[in-house]
Design a protein around this nucleic acid. Structure first.
Length: 296
DNA sequence: TTCCAGGGGTAGA
DNA sequence: TCTACCCATGGA
């Protein structure tokens, strides 16, 4: 086993712990958050064909990446690939300054928000899509179970990693037998997962192209809603993961947050009223909700 | 047993 | 555009 370690520069303020843990993605395989060491760990298959386990940790001089792998030392291309995946996962290239400025304007100070906003995402749009499908109409424990099963049953083994695996490719998921889908416990979501993986595996769909910032949000939303299994909630969640924060993903969780704070005494509130709560936040509505400090 | 979860597809108005 | 009904699965 080899352990390689290197540092990638980070522009501060950047709140790494917030980025890694502010939403539940760090609890979904093949990601793992070690709270004690404040380290984010993930299994990954590199373009070179090598399967690695890498972890990231904050240092004053930047983000330290530690990579476990077999065979020879990492090539320069592999280091670049790991760095790029890290940048994607933590949105290190996004400038949240306009959000902090608006936050300061709306709430009087940006002290509590500086460095936050980098909600963790997967290295690929495909992985986030699979995970988003598995958050619909199910408890969070169910989401974790389904994704954990998917990674255990179809992900590739990583040497010297204590059983860690990679997230399976679209091809692997598309080709998996029904028995594996049943064992994952997807329920009726199985056909959505299978068909989207097949569209990618057969080259009919390039989901990674959705990262293109020149696509208008409205157009992106239309494409998302055209996918089986993606409705208003899932489309808005995907838009957030794609770095578009102007839509709210209204689900039972958001209602449970908003109603006692903004509509005390009411048992139900229309989606229109919920949108009204964050209507003044322009391009940053989702983050305004996510980092809303309003007490109950 | 029934209800429902970080909803969505479909049919019918 | 809106509503009723159905959808697998597991936990409460």
């Amino acid at each position: 086993m080899h352990v390689s370690s290197f540092i990638i520069p980070v522009q501060y303020p950047f709140d790494f712990v917030s980025a890694a843990t502010a939403h539940g993605w760090c609890q979904l395989a093949p990601m793992h958050w070690d709270a004690e060491t404040e380290t984010l760990v993930r299994g990954e298959r590199l373009g070179s064909g090598r399967n690695i386990l890498f972890s990231m940790r904050r240092l004053d001089e930047g983000l330290e990446l530690t990579v476990r792998h077999d065979g020879e030392g990492l090539t320069e291309a592999e280091r670049v690939e790991i760095s790029q995946k890290t940048m994607t996962m933590l949105r290190l290239e996004t400038d949240f300054t306009p959000f902090y400025e608006l936050y300061s304007e709306m709430r009087g100070s940006s002290e509590n928000i500086l460095g936050k906003g980098h909600l963790l995402r997967s290295p690929t749009v495909f992985e986030d899509f699979m995970k988003t499908i598995c958050t619909t109409n199910i408890t969070w424990s169910g989401t974790r179970r389904m994704i954990g099963n998917l990674v255990d049953l179809l992900g590739e083994e990583i040497p010297f990693s204590d059983g860690a695996r990679t997230f399976p490719s679209p091809e692997k998921i598309a080709a998996a037998p029904d028995s594996v889908f049943a064992a994952c416990g997807f329920g009726y979501r199985a056909e959505y997962i299978r068909s989207s993986a097949q569209q990618i595996a057969t080259g009919k769909l390039d989901m990674e192209a959705w990262q293109d910032e020149s696509i208008p949000t409205g157009e992106l939303k239309k494409r998302l809603l055209g996918m089986k299994g993606i409705g208003p909630y899932a489309a808005s969640t995907m838009l957030m993961l794609l770095g578009r924060y102007d839509e709210l993903a209204i689900d039972s969780e958001m209602k449970a947050f908003v109603i006692p704070r903004y509509f005390p005494g009411k048992s139900t509130v229309s989606e229109r009223d919920i949108r009204g709560v964050y209507s003044g936040w322009g391009q940053w509505k989702y983050l305004a909700y996510w980092f809303d400090p309003t007490p109950k």
